[in-house]
């Protein structure tokens, strides 16, 4: 029995290895998106109707779509849109959600009640339905998708941050700071916020995949990115009717969504461990 035990001690733990793999995959996706103009074999919007629906081969690794555009090129450029949407939605949601949540958690009382009741109102609507409604009211575009998703996303961060901050606010180091006369905003910035961030950061990394999927869903329904913007969800929507005859049109953007969402989930699991200071290397 000594062998397996020793092996377990030598190898990194499974969640850490998965997180590492997730990190590497995300880095690859981000690099591919950033350097898309250098990596893409063709211009993003070059139409070649004569080369429509070519299967994958040496000239077009991922094949071509209905209007002869190179799908590898579109997947690389599509990463830019999807990652930018995810970053914008998560940054906006986290900024609003965490700020309100930490204030609610630390202050307590009526202020917490008011903030949490407002989040209840937003959470009462199914997120995708609310996003759809907003996207219909506003002009369909990538920016609209960002606003629509962010509006449904921030209340989760508020609730999470409020519960963590309420717990942090009772820790002795917060009491010690109060006894030293440190002003409340300073206590929130110096102690409550940093010590409330770990679960929020984990949640953000876990949510990145969900945001990309939701943005893809909005585009798929015609309410997000519009032609000729390259976006994975839009590409899946445009290729769905061809799945049985020209599988590559829908498969490669679909795989890009799957791999990216999965990578963010793996990274989120790993962050949970890495950001816990008690688990830091001594």
């Amino acid at each position: 029995m000594r062998g397996p035990v020793r092996l377990r001690r030598t190898l990194p733990r499974v969640p850490d290895r998965l997180a590492g793999l997730g990190g590497v995959l995300i880095a690859l996706v981000v690099l591919a998106a950033v350097f898309a103009p250098l990596l893409a074999p063709y211009p993003a919007d070059e139409l070649k109707p004569a080369e429509a629906l070519l299967p994958p081969d040496g000239a077009h690794w991922f094949g071509t779509d209905q209007v002869g555009r190179d799908i590898l090129t579109r997947v690389l450029y599509g990463g830019r849109t999807s990652l930018a949407v995810a970053a914008a939605v998560l940054a906006a949601s986290a900024a609003v959600g965490v700020t309100l949540g930490v204030v609610a958690g630390y202050a307590g009382g009526w202020l917490r009640d008011v903030i949490l009741r407002v989040t209840d109102v937003f959470l009462a609507f199914p997120a995708l339905l609310l996003s759809l409604a907003l996207a219909v009211v506003l002009q369909p575009s990538v920016s609209t998708a960002v606003v629509a998703i962010a509006v449904t996303w921030w209340p989760w961060y508020t609730r999470l941050a409020a519960s963590v901050a309420a717990s942090v606010a009772t820790r002795p180091y917060v009491d010690a700071a109060r006894c030293l006369g440190v002003p409340a905003p300073m206590i929130v910035l110096r102690h409550v916020l940093p010590n409330s961030l770990t679960p929020v950061l984990v949640q953000i990394s876990l949510d990145a995949g969900g945001v990309i999927l939701t943005a893809a869903a909005l585009s798929y329904l015609g309410l997000g990115a519009q032609e000729p913007t390259a976006e994975w969800g839009l590409m899946v929507q445009q290729g769905q009717s061809l799945f049985t005859t020209n599988w590559w049109v829908v498969t490669f953007p679909g795989l890009a969504i799957l791999v990216t969402a999965f990578a963010f989930n793996m990274l989120g699991e790993g962050l949970r461990n890495a950001l816990d200071p008690r688990r830091a290397v001594r």
Binding site: D175, L180, P194
Partner: peptide, 27 residues
């Protein structure tokens, strides 16, 4: 009052994210 009366809680009452010098400097 804050100058005159100070608490000494258990050893676990330091902010885990702050360096101990910063914890003392806060006072």
């Amino acid at each position: 009052f804050r100058r005159d009366v100070q608490p000494v809680f258990q050893a676990e009452s330091l902010d885990p994210r702050m360096r101990v010098g910063a914890s003392v400097a806060e006072a």
